[in-house]
Nucleic acid binder design. Structure first.
Lengths: 151, 151
DNA sequence: ACCCTTTAATTAGATATCTAACTATATAAT
DNA sequence: ATTATATAGTTAGATATCTAATTAAAGGGT
């Protein structure tokens, strides 16, 4: 299976990554058009992550979870904090670290975002079929995992 | 096939788009690490597009091809022009429009980018297999096409 | 001919992201 | 203990992107 003709590698993988890039752009634009209160995708992503995991994580852990740099996560957290969606406290166990906690207001904003998401996704789901996404997601996960481990 | 339980829509599609987003980040970072002369992904993408199609297109056509806004493409073209990779001329058939042409220097830069791309993609190809990408790409294309037509 | 609408390109201003550099704290080595 | 190294978080500066507004030109309707 591995090591077919290498000449075909670049065009094939270029087409793959081109599709990935355009879907990313389209999905972010579609999401941000319906998110309430001018919320951006990364903000919603972090709120969602915190609700689902139910943990109080550090900025560094969040940066790692979202594959962004720490300064980027610093910026995201500051925006969430300014809106009252999270509170940031010092970590009693590590003087360098902090702990980020979602607030009730943050939970409400996340709920509102989720509610806006349904109508966006339902047509995709109904038109293209659940099976397509159930098939694609684990395979994309394989690609993502490999790239993440070998970067 | 369409219209399964709608409750499952959001988590399933969220996971899909999360994978898309992370792969996009990782691939852009990997690409820009190996591109010569500080070239960025959009610059390489435009040069590549122009060589493959062999057409002289307008900024508006390029913006449409890459699914970015026109101001974004204006910025990209200005950067390419500053490096001498393209020349921009008025369109004799439409006083509003311009025509973007790749230069020999731009072609050389594109070639250098392509050469750097191979070693990046070969491990992916060999480890995960050609079949995976041949299977994924047309399916992603279906998703992209639908989203593009219904945004 | 003249106005109205659309389209092409740009400019201005805002935001998210990155890398590099900095501060502070923790951990390991000697 | 002291020193060196690594890690957490932030700040500073640069870039790519977006939306809104501006300018110029094309096309359609009356």
């Amino acid at each position: 299976m591995p090591s077919d003709k290498i000449e075909n590698t670049v065009p094939l993988l270029s087409a793959f990554f081109t599709e990935i890039g355009i879907i990313e752009q389209l999905s972010r634009a579609a999401l941000e058009r319906v998110l309430p209160d001018g919320m951006k995708q990364p903000h919603f992503g972090v709120l969602n992550h915190m609700v689902r995991l139910g943990l109080d994580e550090s900025p560094a852990q969040l940066a790692s979870a979202f594959q962004v740099t720490r300064p980027t996560m610093t910026n995201t957290i500051q925006k969430l904090e300014a809106k009252g969606y999270v509170v940031v406290k010092p970590d009693p166990r590590d003087g360098r670290a902090k702990i980020v906690q979602i607030t009730d207001k943050g939970r409400a904003a996340r709920e509102a975002g989720l509610a806006a998401l349904g109508p966006l996704m339902q047509p995709l789901y109904e038109t293209l079929g659940k099976d397509l996404f159930e098939e694609l997601t684990p395979k994309l996960s394989r690609v993502r995992t490999y790239m993440d481990e070998n970067r």
